[in-house]
Nucleic acid binder design. Sequence first.
DNA 1: AGCGGGACCTGTGGGC
DNA 2: TGCCCACAGGTCCCGC
Length: 283
Amino acid sequence: MPELPEVETVARTLAPYVQDCVFEDSTLLRSSTLHPLSLPLKSLAGQRISALRRRAKLLVFDLVPLQGNEPIKPIPSCLVIHLRMTGRIFTAKANAESGQHTRCIWNLRKPDQSSFQLFFDDTRTFGKVFVANKELLSAWKFWRELGPEPLELNLGAFLARLRGKRALKASLLDQKVLAGIGNIYADEALFRSGINPQRPTDSLEEKEAEALLKAIKDVLNMAILKKGSSIRDYRDADGKAGNFQKSFFVYGRGGEKCRKCGTILEKIRIGGRSTVFCPQCQH
DNA sequence: AGCGGGACCTGTGGGC
DNA sequence: TGCCCACAGGTCCCGC
């Protein structure tokens, strides 16, 4: 579910609740939700959240030990959460009961000493929670190999990453090439730049790469402004759905008419993922 | 190197 | 109404 704009929205809506709060105890309701390399959840106790940020599709809680507390070793430096397809994170009052799909609950203490809970719910259970420090993060292949943030990428660096003969769409979905783009925004950016998703990656002319990079940034920025896209499950930390799904040109519209030219949109599979494009507008 | 397929899961929507 | 199948914002692994 959540791609870069959705995770960015969760980070922005959750930050005001958790900033400077301190972890107390944690409850893991499904063991597979904890990443195999993770430190135990109990090592979070006494850690203060100094910042909440996004990297790629990951939510990162930066931690600092509370002064005067004896931290549990090894000391974690962050809590990383990957929402995958159906993960949701939200706050609840102290002692709220878990739901059918609740996978993890954290008790947090605010600076004013009052307490509340942070819930991680995940219907399909693909999501992961990872308590880490620098060493563990660099041991995590996925993290170590993440490509650059697309919103911070310049044309030269983008061109340098467009290597290989595979379909361009497959490259855009590869988190080692660019970090944060998923199935929705890959299709939308390709449509908006007029490029066919099946094109070999290394066939792009510089002008086309420039148009594609601009389309990627535009579509991600617009989606962030609209608080993400909600197809079904996605909600921000306040439980609110996004609005960018109303602006889709192609995603989920296979067989319907192109909003620009009226041609019937084609639906194919690339790299096992549904891909919708306009055979008239995209070359 | 890069593909297709399957695995991991649960839920929903469409077709019959 | 009910059953069965396809499919879903992601990633990983295997075999060719």
